[in-house]
């Protein structure tokens, strides 16, 4: 499909190269959304909604940034990103599982707190620029294929890792014993409990691991894009897009991948069109596109799904209490 698109572009006389670069950078830009969405799938499959993805991403970004800035070690930076976001997710887990708080409000609290903390601790390095740690690898023999080469085989190592991650998470959920327990806890916690599965342990584990995936997304932003830490626009709402994507993908990791790339493309539309010298579109309107796309997508999904609930875990958002009487 990509090939025919490319040949169409070639014959129509449009500068193919610009579009290929755009698509390649869309794949790269999709990664933080992808990681965050996969993490949210793990979390929601256990029955807990974590709306705090944006907050966890921000914490992941700032922790990874500070660690990388201080140590120049990509590994340490990644670990810090994971831990920071995981710690925030742990707060959510404690509130929602142990204290049975309202999951929606807790998630929002995470966003507000995460944004506040990252701005607070990130203030001293505001505007500081760092070098990207991961540069693109060329897969021998494949990277010089037309279109497919640069888009798929000339990416940084984390892009290849992400494919592995998606496959393993899908396998874990659907084909393993702990995955079965995870699904049961999200579908019917009382059943899982009766079978001797600790609902809270499963939920704690997946909320925190899910948060760490968001942290990985945050670290990716730092280590691949190597931006300046900037209070306003580091994540630009992609945490929320990831949440919408989970619904769109019916809580399945495989489907999330394609959605994420589409959003990556929308997020990069501004630059891609500039590269293609298409300037009649106002930049602000282009920047709205990913968000408009999310709204349209969510509405479309819910219109086609009235009453059916797609694949939403049946106990999603409901605290589990065994002894209430």
């Amino acid at each position: 499909m990509i090939g025919s698109f490319a040949s169409f572009l070639a014959t129509s006389g449009i500068n193919t190269n610009v579009w290929v670069v755009g698509l390649a950078s869309a794949v790269s830009f999709a990664m933080p959304i992808l990681f965050a969405a996969v993490g949210e799938i793990l979390c929601e499959r256990s029955g807990i909604v974590n709306l705090g993805v944006e907050g966890m991403l921000l914490c992941g970004v700032v922790a990874a940034f500070l660690a990388y800035d201080a140590s120049d070690s990509a590994a340490l930076s990644m670990v810090c990103g994971l831990l920071a976001a995981g710690a925030l997710a742990l707060v959510h887990a404690f509130l929602c599982i142990t204290l049975r708080s309202n999951q929606t409000v807790s998630g929002l609290a995470l966003v507000i707190f995460g944004a506040g903390v990252s701005n607070f601790v990130g203030e001293p390095v505001e505007g500081k620029q760092i070098e990207a740690a991961f540069t693109d690898l060329r897969i021998p023999g494949l990277h010089d294929l037309p279109v497919v080469g640069p888009v798929l085989f000339h990416q940084n190592v984390l892009v290849y890792v992400s494919v592995l991650v998606v496959i393993s998470v899908a396998f874990y959920i659907n084909r393993t014993r702990p995955g079965l327990a995870l699904r049961a806890v999200g579908e019917s916690p009382a059943t899982a409990d009766a079978q001797g599965i600790s609902v809270s342990k499963v939920r704690y584990a997946h909320v925190v691991i899910g948060g760490m995936f968001a942290g990985l997304g945050g670290a990716y932003i730092v280590l691949v894009d190597g931006p300046a830490w900037n209070q306003e626009n580091t994540t630009g709402g992609i945490g929320w897009i990831a949440l919408a994507l989970v619904v769109f993908a019916s809580w399945r990791p495989g489907r999330v991948m394609f959605g994420a790339i589409a959003f990556g493309f929308a997020l990069r539309a501004n630059f891609t069109l500039q590269g293609a010298q298409i300037t009649w579109f106002p930049a602000e309107v282009l920047r709205m596109m990913p968000y408009v796309l999310t709204v349209v997508m969510l509405i479309a999904v819910s219109i086609t799904d009235v009453g059916n609930k797609l694949g939403a875990p049946a106990a999603l958002g409901r605290p589990f209490v065994r002894d209430e009487r």
Binding site: R175, T176, R177, A181, E187, T191, Q195, I197, A314
Partner: peptide, 24 residues
Amino acid sequence: FRLVERFTVAENIALGDTSQPWKL
């Protein structure tokens, strides 16, 4: 009943059974 509606009969029976192999 403590059954997961979306699971198959076999999946429900395997649920929580620690003697099951890690890969089902």
